[in-house]
């Protein structure tokens, strides 16, 4: 259910792109007919129901099947011993694009990609040059997550200004680039909307233990934070829990977490589903970023914000405007590191 809701803006965009790409397919020599194209996905051991990347990748695969008309093959690994055989299987079966879901595949993909130079591979949220040997038949699907951070930060700033909040906060899982870019964007966006806003930020050094993030968020709320942005996966759900209990707003991350309740202002998205579908659409047109990365951004529909709650909806128009400004390049150079 939530999956379909989440696709709001981006899906429409991609659908339009897709229609274009299919229309263009027949005329180019390097393109493949969608009906003869198989999109393969190998999910990591988290499983397809992980409420995370695997699930989103699978959703993207289903979307590609429905909208682009490609065939699909999905293999869900139960152990990391499955990675090489499953990638091999999809390559041997002649899949046109084999998507490995996540960094856990770095080593396995490095081995298999070299053995099947004619097969195209993609890896989620991981730059292609992280693969040993930097094979030319691999592209990375990466995300400009600072844009998502900026958008939810901007919304937070608007809400704060309207309600007289002075302080908002974020809980990061760890001080690493993929987390920091979200938070840097969040603070930049918040400042842009409300220059007087104060920001609290802390890292839990954990992505699993909800209690840790809950404690951090509790402290932040105690120091006056009225909005808590979680960037800590499963641990971060504890931060949202703290926001709920203390009457503060929470902001979800990666997937749309509005299902948690009306206190979720919105979510900062990393749309793996959109990325998978877009990569498929590109390849159908003969476009493949050999050894490079397809950077998913607001422009591609790969980043953005999720469902807005009642308070957020009041600012929907302003937020859409900011999104358009990012897309047009009017807002650029959003920081990726926290000062």
């Amino acid at each position: 259910m939530k999956i379909f809701m989440r696709l709001s803006v981006a899906a429409a965009l991609v659908a339009a792109l897709t229609a274009l790409s299919i229309g263009a397919a027949g005329s180019s020599a390097s393109t493949t007919a969608a009906s003869k194209f198989t999109l393969g996905i190998v999910a990591d051991t988290g499983g397809l129901n992980d409420h995370g990347f695997n699930h989103l990748a699978y959703e993207g695969q289903l979307e590609a099947k429905a909208k682009l008309g490609v065939k699909i093959q999905t293999l869900q690994a139960t152990s990391s011993a499955d990675y090489v055989p499953y990638l091999t299987k999809e390559a041997e079966d002649g899949d046109n694009l084999v998507v490995a879901v996540g960094f856990d595949f770095i080593t396995a993909l490095g081995q298999v990609a070299k053995e099947f130079p004619k097969t195209k591979f993609a890896i989620i949220d991981t730059p292609a040059d992280a693969i040993a040997g930097k094979p030319k038949n691999v592209e990375g699907l990466t995300f400009e997550s600072q844009q998502s951070g900026y958008l939810v930060g901007y919304l937070s700033g608007l809400v704060s200004k309207a309600k007289g909040y002075t302080t908002i906060s974020s809980v990061g899982g760890q001080d690493i680039p993929s987390v920091e870019s979200y938070i840097a964007g969040y603070q930049a966006g918040g400042k842009a909307a409300d220059p007087s806003l104060k920001f609290l930020n802390a890292y839990s050094d954990d992505f699993a233990d909800q209690a840790k993030c809950e404690t951090i968020a509790d402290n932040q709320i105690g120091e006056g934070s009225k909005i808590v942005f979680q960037v800590a996966g499963g641990c971060g759900l504890g931060a949202l829990q703290a926001a709920k209990q203390k009457g503060a707003y929470g902001i979800g991350v990666d997937a749309d977490q509005s299902y948690l309740g009306s206190y979720i202002l919105t979510s900062a998205l990393k749309k793996v589903d959109v990325a998978v579908e877009a990569a498929t659409a590109s390849l159908l047109k003969g476009k493949f970023d050999a050894g490079g990365d397809i950077v998913n951004s607001v422009a591609t529909g790969g980043t953005g914000y999720g469902v807005l709650d009642a308070e957020g909806k009041k600012f929907a128009g302003q937020l859409a405007k900011v999104l358009a400004e990012i897309k047009s390049g009017k807002i650029k150079n959003i920081p990726v590191t926290v000062k």
Binding site: F103, I106, D205
Partner: peptide, 17 residues
Amino acid sequence: FQENGPLQGKQALGNPV
């Protein structure tokens, strides 16, 4: 092996490996 852990790989790019 986790992020910033003492045995995390140099090429791990923030991944716990």
